[in-house]
Design a protein around this nucleic acid. Structure first.
Lengths: 228, 228
DNA sequence: ATATTTGTGTAACAATTATGACAGATTAAT
DNA sequence: ATTAATCTGTCATAATTGTTACACAAATAT
């Protein structure tokens, strides 16, 4: 019990440490560990537990049959994994979940989660909210894919990154990417050389300037125009 | 009251007609009608109500800034609309919702829905389940988009369509598409001529045969190979 | 039955991206 | 500090798809 720390977990946010302790004394669960590179869950395998990443980080990837891979998202502790699929009729993992670091993951059986819902309305509400946010995320991801050109995807990504930092640095025109070029290409589902070429061109056109992972926006209007 | 018929609605399935009647006597709601072509909700507008399509049909589309459109799904009554976004932090419609037929839509305020959760656990459970299924759907949609080639998308679509009919016609190699070529191109987010060309080529290669909306699979293994 | 609209097949050409390959730069490991 | 591994910039070529255009077929309306 002592080893479970849910602080920062969005679906546990409404619960006090005391409350969590009580809840987990009454339910069944198990904890597994994984090392970097381990496959935590396979695309297509059934999802019977609420899995919460207690420590470490994972990435989720979608694999097409020919092996072409698209990274969906990177997840760092403490966060639930695939919580949206636990109660679906076809409750299978839509992605590969791969440890990108040493990981500790708690697995709570479906039925125990239902019990927790009954015992604590706050938990239920944050669960619904979290899944809503998740769906929103998938929608945004769909939107990115709906943009056909690489320049457009990049523009979308940069404008989004700028907005996220807006609260921290209002009026700022810089931000730091959390991916390198290779990872970014995977995220977009495009080839790396093609992405590099687009970056070069956009730098030549004085729209952006990228140094390492630092992105500086020079012509914001031009970025907006690229979105289509 | 007499005009509300939720039969067939997945999030109301656990409730008896009597129960629904009682619930809806205690809560606030409104009903609007739309004619074919009307915009029910705009991409980006806030989602403050649980909207349930009581009669008619709508389509949801994602619009990129340059106007390129991708149809996400077609929805026929009785179904909730964008139920997954109601409780998200950023509760905005991710899509345009457009009436494809005369529609009646009931709108229940967010807070009233919360009340209904408290009053009826069955409703709550089916709500969670429905949203889970929705997320699964979006994932599948992402998967389709992750397939790069048009032939691959088409192969995925056909194999999926075949599977859906499997229960009705086991071992069958035919099915009827619910979209015409133009709609299918929009669904894939590709140009119509390019789709037509791919169909032609796949027919020449003796993989499929499409007549009107009737699809016949001749070489299933070849379809599998195209998935990548 | 005829006119109108909508859907389909096809073509030439342009634009974009993938592929594979390589050298140089950067970062991490020892 | 040096080596090894990874990342980046670039290129030529091939493959795929978009664009625009047009003729014809099919469905729908009058």
């Amino acid at each position: 019990m002592k080893e479970i720390d849910f602080s920062g977990c969005p679906i546990m946010s409404s619960l006090s440490g005391e409350r969590i302790k009580n809840l987990f004394e009454e339910i069944e669960f198990k904890i597994n560990t994984y090392k970097k590179g381990d496959i935590v869950a396979r695309q297509g395998s059934p999802c019977k537990y609420l899995n919460i990443l207690l420590a470490g980080a994972v990435k989720t990837e979608m694999v097409a049959e020919n092996g072409s891979v698209m990274t969906i998202e990177n997840i760092a502790a403490v966060r639930p994994l695939a919580s949206a699929f636990l109660f679906a009729e076809n409750n299978i993992f839509p992605v590969d979940v791969i440890a990108t670091d040493f990981c500790r993951i708690i697995s709570i059986p479906r039925d125990e989660v239902l019990k927790m819902f009954q015992k604590d309305a706050g938990f239920l509400e944050s669960y619904i909210k979290y899944n809503s946010n998740k769906t929103q995320f998938l929608s945004t991801r769909l939107q990115t894919l709906n943009i056909k050109t690489i320049k457009g995807k990049l523009a979308f990504y940069i404008l989004e990154g700028l907005n996220k930092n807006l609260v921290l640095n209002p009026g700022n025109n810089k931000f730091r990417m959390d991916r390198n070029q290779t990872e970014l290409a995977k995220y977009f589902g495009v080839s790396r050389p093609a992405l590099a070429r687009c970056i070069s061109e956009m730098e030549e056109e004085n729209i952006i300037l990228i140094e390492h992972k630092e992105v500086k926006v020079i012509n914001r209007a031009a970025l907006q125009n690229l979105l289509g």
